[in-house]
């Protein structure tokens, strides 16, 4: 495992911790999209299904369990927790799941590395992850005033994707036959979706001000 990959995983872990911190200690999920969180839960459930069939490393197994557990508990908090759920911006978070899930599944049936259950689900989870952030970005745009933890959560998620791209570049040059177009292109698309957010995030850091997206 190279340094970019490790840094990417740890950034991903940090993003989840920031979100759990916000929900658990402040008891608020204001500005957080339940749709995005549910899509992530589907992403991890389909991608990490091989948890019980193939063993890769203790690190791999532990991380998978953490991402599965955290994504489902975040969904539970927003839907069921008696205090947290009151802060959910339901009227603003209007993205339709099937507009995203269905096309991703069809695409996975057409484009995959191999026509096996594992590979089709793997491709599906990659396509879905690429666009799962969209409801969250739409919600940010609508909320305009974004609190620090929400801003940091989205920033860390974007940073995690950027580090994965560096990881693939590194692996391409150091490992023989390391070519994975499906992973790379969907990962690149996913990272590009953050470009706009990154721009305003750094702008607000430079001006030492609050993160605000233009209308």
């Amino acid at each position: 495992m190279n340094i970019f990959r490790l840094a990417g995983d740890l950034t991903h872990l940090a993003s989840v911790l920031v979100l759990l911190l916000k929900i658990h200690t402040i008891k608020s999920c204001a500005g957080i999209s339940l749709k995005t969180q549910e899509l992530y839960a589907i992403v991890f459930a389909t991608r990490y299904l091989d948890l019980f069939t193939t063993y890769i490393s203790l690190y791999n197994t532990l991380m998978k369990l953490i991402f599965l557990g955290s994504s489902f508990s975040i969904v539970w908090y927003i839907r069921k927790h008696k205090i947290v759920r009151r802060s959910y911006d339901k009227d603003q978070d209007t993205f339709r799941h099937y507009f995203i899930v269905l096309p991703c599944f069809v695409l996975a049936l057409i484009i995959h590395e191999k026509f096996t259950v594992r590979e089709v689900l793997w491709a599906f989870s990659l396509y879905l992850e690429a666009v799962a952030i969209l409801p969250q970005l739409v919600l940010l745009q609508r909320t305009r005033n974004i609190d620090n933890l929400t801003g940091q959560y989205v920033f860390l998620l974007g940073a995690y994707r950027a580090l994965y791209i560096l990881n693939w570049i590194y692996r391409y040059f150091t490992e023989p036959h390391f070519v994975h177009w499906i992973t790379w292109i969907s990962g690149l698309v996913q990272t590009l979706l953050y470009a706009d957010f990154f721009y305003y995030y750094f702008q607000s850091m430079k001006n030492n001000g609050k993160l605000q997206l233009p209308a």
């Binding site: 091989d50 890769i56 991402f67 990881n167 490992e175 390391f178 994975h180």
Partner: peptide
């Protein structure tokens, strides 16, 4: 091993 490589990622 070549087919497995990408699946070590998260």
């Amino acid at each position: 091993a070549i087919e497995e490589d990408i699946h070590d990622e998260l």
